[in-house]
Design a protein around this nucleic acid. Structure first.
Lengths: 128, 128
DNA sequence: CGGTTATTTAACTGTATGGTTATTTACAAC
DNA sequence: GTTGTAAATAACCATACAGTTAAATAACCG
């Protein structure tokens, strides 16, 4: 993973941890202190600090500074980037009946191809 | 991360690698052999095999078996799960003007709160 | 200033990850 | 059976990651 051009990987990596997703869910309800964010988890303060650092580095949160407090706030832009990327695959889960037709068609093709193979017709079957 | 109930983490983790995302992009155009999937990358066969294993474990692909071939095919259900989860945050990036208003409001509130702190009113400022 | 609260940083640990080379397994052709 | 191709598995390595405790830093208060 290289640094600048791969925000998507950083975001997805940050989201891949359940603790960090839970932190985002809490921040979706409004900003919160580190202690508040830590409360639901049986883990140490530094562990929470590390999670927040990952989220901050990915641009998913920003950490404020008010006296000794470090209130955190959700930033949604990286989530949008993930959603936009996912949208390039939307046709695959929305055209589910189309996929079934294609599957059956491939099944018939595979049956015919199996016959051809038996007649010594060497062919690479991996391609579309 | 525990096993059964955390498919979302497995999926996001699998997607967090650029090589694996490129593999999915290729499979979006149709199923492909392992060699075809490996072609764009300067990496060894076993490395590709490992990536495919991660994708398979996350349910993002299925690996067929035809003679010595192992044609891979995209499975979109986990992507849909991620998209559905992301949708719970959609209001944050679609109501961007609302967020700006809230930000300005918070700024005024913070200004008033700073005054209160100067008058020795100890208060936790992290909450909403 | 000493004591307290809030949080971060440092150092450490065990496990996972993304890669490698070597080897094995699965299949086809002769 | 031998030889060849396709792919997976085994063993290894360096780095990353998610956690810990100890210590340090930042701020407040009497």
């Amino acid at each position: 993973m290289n640094t600048m051009p791969d925000r998507l990987s950083d975001t997805l990596q940050a989201l891949a941890d359940p603790t960090r997703r839970a932190i985002l869910a809490r921040l979706a309800m409004g900003r919160a202190t580190v202690a508040e964010l830590a409360a639901p988890f049986a883990m140490s303060g530094p562990a929470i600090s590390k999670h927040l650092k990952v989220l901050e580095r990915a641009g998913l949160i920003e950490r404020g500074r008010e006296a000794q407090w470090r209130p955190c706030r959700l930033k949604a832009a990286p989530l949008r980037e993930v959603a936009d990327w996912l949208d390039t695959y939307r046709r695959f889960w929305e055209a589910s009946f189309d996929r079934l037709d294609t599957y059956l068609e491939d099944l018939q093709t595979a049956t015919r191809e199996a016959k051809n193979v038996r007649t010594k017709n060497k062919r690479r079957t991996g391609g579309e």
